[in-house]
């Protein structure tokens, strides 16, 4: 996403997830990234399941891959997403960290 309006629109529901806890079902450590994420490699992305059974793909931060276990408890946090793009808007979004 590039335009500030697109980013603003996608952020409407983020507050619903802040601090939400869930369990990590599976994860992968990515070495070849899409544009805007190259500077973060390698990084971990997993699928997190919340108590209401909703599932989200989220970057897993503040940990090493070796320390992760299936069903590990995680908590949703707000972090910067990717590189700052052409309109100079710093985009924030959801990630998760182990508890």
């Amino acid at each position: 996403m590039n335009s500030p309006v697109q980013i603003w629109r996608s952020h409407k529901n983020l507050h619903n997830y802040l601090g939400k806890q869930g369990r990590l079902l599976v994860w992968t450590k990515i070495f070849i990234a899409p544009s805007g994420f190259e500077h973060q490699t390698p990084y971990i992305v997993g699928i997190v399941e919340f108590a209401d059974k909703e599932k989200l793909p989220l970057q897993i931060v503040d940990c090493e891959e070796e320390s992760l276990k299936p069903n590990q408890k995680v908590k949703v946090v707000i972090r910067k997403i990717g590189k700052v793009k052409s309109e100079d808007v710093i985009e924030y979004g959801l990630k998760a960290k182990p508890l």
């Binding site: 996608s10 079902l25 599976v26 994860w27 992968t28 990515i30 070849i32 990234a33 899409p34 994420f37 973060q40 990084y43 992305v45 997993g46 699928i47 989200l56 793909p57 989220l58 970057q59 997403i81 990717g82 979004g93 959801l94």
Partner: peptide, 17 residues
């Protein structure tokens, strides 16, 4: 896309499962 996933990454999640 916001999670920085790639297609290899998505299929890797299926492989891990």
């Amino acid at each position: 896309r916001l999670a920085g996933l790639t297609f290899p990454g998505l299929y890797a999640l299926m492989a891990k499962a």
